[in-house]
């Protein structure tokens, strides 16, 4: 048995916790979500080599608990990927924001 005092458990470390019955559905991912998956596989491929899966996980573990719980599966990935790419200087926050505004205009969404 343990003789150490545990820190409060990280929010992603859920082994042993009870969140109720298993939600028995498979999920049906939309195109943007499947593209996030594809993007991660490309970024972590040997030919691109900009990301490791360990970095993706760390990014998810630092989203904050509220975002972790609110975001769908690939939403967590997307937010982690964006944070890591900005951290690595591959792109800037303002470049990303500008592109988001461009997409909003294209799609007729509120700015």
């Amino acid at each position: 048995m343990t003789d150490s005092t545990f820190q409060s458990k990280a929010y992603h470390d859920v082994g042993g916790d009870d969140f109720g019955p298993i939600p028995l559905h498979d999920g049906d991912y939309q195109l943007w979500e499947r593209r996030v998956d594809a993007m991660m596989r490309l970024l972590s491929s040997p030919s691109v080599g900009l990301m490791r899966v360990d970095e993706l996980r760390r990014g998810i573990e630092t989203l904050g608990e509220a975002t972790y719980n609110a975001e769908p599966y690939y939403g967590k990935w997307a937010r982690s990927l964006a944070a890591i790419m900005i951290e690595k200087g591959v792109l800037s926050c303002s470049e990303l924001d500008a592109k988001i505004e461009e997409l909003r205009a294209e799609r007729g969404l509120e700015p």
């Binding site: 939309q30 943007w32 996030v36 690939y74 997307a78 964006a82 990303l96 461009e102 969404l109």
Partner: peptide, 20 residues
């Protein structure tokens, strides 16, 4: 499933892909 393709997160994901 509701269409989330214009959600803030989807826009972020699409923008990230396009900038990359």
């Amino acid at each position: 499933a509701p269409d989330t393709s214009n959600s803030d997160t989807a826009l972020l994901a699409d923008a990230l892909r396009l900038v990359l």
